[in-house]
Write a protein that binds this DNA or RNA. Structure first.
Lengths: 205, 205
DNA sequence: GTCTATATGCGGATAGAC
DNA sequence: GTCTATCCGCATATAGAC
């Protein structure tokens, strides 16, 4: 990692706990192992570091659904085999993957926390947060469930409503256990129950 | 309102947008209409103002279920008539009341925002936030739904799981529309759909 | 690209007059 | 209980040597 990358990385860690204003340039420099004045050779201001984080996050968004083991929009074969093989345990696994990816992926989880803290202060940060954690996830799953209704795997129901019932427990548990990482097992247990109930409600036959 | 109360009130408003560190004692004093030095005749420190807010919040928690139109634990008659009369529209109304109370009540909504921002910085604040918005709500509704299952209004199902499906969309929508108050109508529309689906799933007969 | 030194301003808090 | 004046420390950022 270059010094510049290290700065961005350490800044994200500090912003995600102390917030932007609550993080001093000196604390970032300390974490990197340079003097605060040296940092200004890499970035012209503290704000520019935050802007870099936001830009990086935008570029990550596209890669995410892949990382969660979901079929890509353009890969028809993979999608077909995915839908065909879906059963209760696979659905549980899918929800776990989404939950744990958001909770544990070093970049995403720190961005979740920073977005939470900075939502009323930094509109740029909030826009990414909202897109990623509130809009994309539900839209993606609505598409998924819509397809599964079509293929007769799930009963007739509004895919949007289904997606909300699938995703909002994940969102809630992320909120709750981001601050309580030692008890992730509790969260997974609760999520397991919700998803099995979800499957019971919507499975066909 | 006494000056002391005004200070607490304005401080909560400012903390809920700028955070604790992001709010200056001078900005609180300005909002109240006194000099920053005068404020120290009422509170010995900025921290003491925050502590007062937290203490006030704790004392408010007990009153909340009443404010949301739910039957009190000790009022048997009211509870019976409440359960007996429950239908789809009443359930929609109940969810709307909870949602709008959390979103619009001046004290609670500002505390929600402050709690969101301060959760990684101020454990005292977070403890109230978690209790109020993550634990009590679900526990209360689990009790409610458990009773309704007993009375044969709802089908056999785990009341805890039902409560999570009832509450997490509310929680999600609060997160989303706290930052977008002009579009509350969108939120209510979405909530309406979720609750009607909930009723469809769990009603008996 | 790293350092030391420094400019400048702001924030929390206190002292003491009225 | 309000004000003015002030202390002290810290934060962002710049200048300039190496």
């Amino acid at each position: 990692m270059t010094t510049k990358e290290k700065i961005v990385d350490e800044a994200l860690s500090l912003f995600s706990v102390n917030g932007y204003k609550g993080t001093t340039v000196k604390s970032i420099a300390d974490a990197v192992g340079i003097k605060d004045s040296s940092l200004y050779k890499h970035f012209k201001s503290k704000q520019e570091i935050l802007d870099t984080i936001v830009a990086t996050m935008w570029s990550h968004i596209a890669d995410m659904s892949n990382a969660m083991g979901l079929p890509a929009d353009d890969d028809v074969e993979q999608a077909v085999s995915f839908y065909a093989s879906l059963d209760e345990n696979l659905l549980v696994e899918l929800s776990n993957q989404i939950f744990l990816f958001y909770l544990k992926d070093s970049f995403v989880s720190r961005f979740w926390r920073m977005g939470t803290i900075e939502q009323f202060q930094n509109p740029e940060v909030y826009r990414v947060f909202r897109k990623l954690f509130m809009e994309e996830s539900i839209a993606y799953q609505a598409g998924l469930f819509g397809e599964m209704v079509k293929q007769g795997i799930f009963i007739e129901a509004d895919p949007q409503v289904m997606a909300v019932y699938f995703y909002t427990p994940i969102y809630f548990l992320l909120s709750k256990y981001t601050n309580d990482l030692e008890h992730t097992d509790e969260a997974l247990e609760m999520l397991d129950k919700q998803v099995r109930e979800f499957y019971r409600i919507y499975r066909k036959g």
